[in-house]
Amino acid sequence: MVLNSINPAGDPRVGHYNANLNGKNYHYLLATPPRAFRATIFLIHGWPDISMGWRYQIPSLLQAGYRVVCPDIMGFGGTDAPPVAPPPSNEGIEYYSFKRAAEDIKELARQLGCSEIILGGHDWGGAIVYKVALWFPELVTHLFSVCTPHRAPTKTYIPLEAMVSKLPNFGYQLQLASGAVEEHIKTKVQIKQFLNGLYGGKGPNGEVGFDVRKGVLFENLPILRKSALMDEEVLECYAEEYYRNGIGGTLCWYRNQEVNFQDELQLTKKTIDIPVLFIQATKDEALPPAMSEGMEEYVTNMTRKSVPTSHWALWEAPEQVNGMVKEWLEKVDHSKSSL
């Protein structure tokens, strides 16, 4: 192992906590430097991930003097997974909206005594941190996103089907939103095979478990060899967390386009003007580099970096990612250590 990452089976550098945020239980990791900290950084994960997805980044940020908070977002890990009614009702889908995520992050920051925070995100977490900065600009002083470019709010609703017709690399989202994945992936063994496939496990003849245009390739999952990105202990931890509430809640994030659109019509601020670091993964098939073109129109103080990895840059190139984040923070974060 390249870095001394957080051990999911138990690690003295992090504590596991729960908080009631706007009526729902959230689980989060908290890591605090031994003496004083410069500022508090919230790290927001995506799919299919959990708070432990930041296991390589937490020690680096601790060493740099930051207090680190990593929540499981709604539907994941130890956080509540509110049920959602089937279409056309979809009652409850608002729990998985960007606005709700922003409100819950703000409330957790308040409970931890933070009037300001730094945000970092990956995958859905990357999308969330941009939205927090738009909903609560007074809360966020800086943010960084790994892999996920910013998509500015629009005045016209674009259904997922129409989006996929222009962005075929989003084809997998149609499957994830359809309900098919929950029907196929139920047992803990199936969840482990599913996660292994999403993290790049391959079969004896190069078979894969996931295609960005199609989604999960269920028939291939049982024959895939173990992904190099996770050892058995970490994979077991992830599988246990996903088995807790099933994977249905985690997929609700792919069903909330209309709720997010309606919410964002209320936004008065359209640009993000705080310092932003965007780290592009150049081999990311789901979020290819072309998707970040033109971001500067809406993210006015942006630093661009890149790493030659797939979507799992946090694990494939942790030293590079950590180095980029720390170098950027040294330039833009002028907060002083406080107790």
Rank of each mutant, 00 (worst) to 15 (best):
L217G: 10
A180I: 11
R225M: 11
N196K: 07
Q193M: 13
Q173S: 01
E183N: 15
L195R: 04
G209M: 08
G201N: 05
M230G: 02
V208G: 10
G201H: 14
T187Q: 08
V181Q: 07
V164H: 09
E183T: 12
M163A: 12
Y238R: 02
K186A: 11
K202T: 15
D211P: 03
M230E: 02
Q173H: 00
E219H: 14
M163H: 11
S178E: 09
K226A: 15
A162G: 14
R213K: 15
N169V: 03
G171F: 09
G209L: 08
V234K: 07
S227F: 06
Y157I: 02
N205Q: 08
V208Q: 11
G179A: 08
E236C: 01
V208D: 04
A177K: 07
E207W: 03
F170W: 09
N169P: 00
S178H: 12
V164G: 05
L198K: 13
E219I: 06
G203K: 03
G206I: 07
Q190N: 02
E182H: 01
G203A: 11
P168D: 01
T156V: 13
L167R: 08
T187C: 06
D231T: 11
L198V: 10
R244N: 04
P168E: 00
E182C: 14
L174G: 14
F194M: 10
L217S: 13
G179Y: 06
N169K: 00
G246F: 01
C237H: 14
N196V: 04
A228W: 14
L176H: 15
E207Q: 15
Q190F: 01
K214G: 04
I223N: 08
C237V: 00
C237T: 10
S227G: 00
I191K: 02
L174V: 11
F194D: 10
Y172W: 03
K214V: 15
E183F: 06
G203C: 13
P153R: 08
K214L: 12
P222F: 02
A162K: 15
Q190P: 07
Y172T: 04
R213I: 03
R213G: 05
V208N: 11
